[in-house]
């Protein structure tokens, strides 16, 4: 990845669970703990969407979480990138025929990076974050 000077800060991510089975959650946490340790590049999870550059969405978006997802999405400051982790957020996955879904995620909010897998490995999640950072670079460059 070739970084330009346009994105000149650490990338912070906010994680939103829209009804996932926890598999992606634990792999996201596994991805930020010492074996992979992306925090040395400044990538970390934050507790508020207002501090985040990247919104990580897991789960197939159940009906109850739709409005909350929209609200959280609006709270993330621009420029923002949305990353959808797990196959159920990309297409519904094993829950494709459920009666309680408003998803997949891209029916609710625009998604920039898809990380497929059920759940994806931590390496895949980190690769997704790198692609998200490239997009942020571009967005930030266009604004400048």
């Amino acid at each position: 990845m070739k970084l330009t000077k346009s994105f000149n800060r650490s990338l912070w991510a906010f994680h939103f669970n829209s009804g996932s089975c926890n598999g992606c959650e634990i792999e996201i946490v596994a991805a930020i703990t010492p074996r992979y340790d992306p925090e040395r590049f400044g990538i970390k999870l934050v507790g508020s969407p207002r501090h985040a550059d990247l919104l990580i969405v897991t789960g197939p978006v159940v009906k109850k979480m739709r409005d909350r997802l929209l609200r959280v999405y609006e709270q993330v400051p621009d420029p923002k990138v949305v990353m959808c982790v797990g196959v159920c957020g990309s297409s519904g996955g094993p829950f494709y025929d459920s009666y309680n879904l408003d998803g997949p995620v891209d029916d609710v909010i625009p998604v920039d990076v898809y990380v497929p897998g059920c759940p994806p490995r931590p390496e895949a999640i980190i690769y997704g974050v790198v692609r998200a950072q490239e997009k942020l670079e571009r967005l930030e460059g266009e604004r400048a």
Binding site: N17, G19, P60, V62, K64, M65, F95, D97, S98, N100
Partner: peptide, 14 residues
């Protein structure tokens, strides 16, 4: 609770 209800049993019966 109930924010992650996906209707798994309903799907399972199909």
């Amino acid at each position: 609770p109930g924010q992650t209800h996906r209707g798994i049993e309903w799907m399972g019966m199909r």
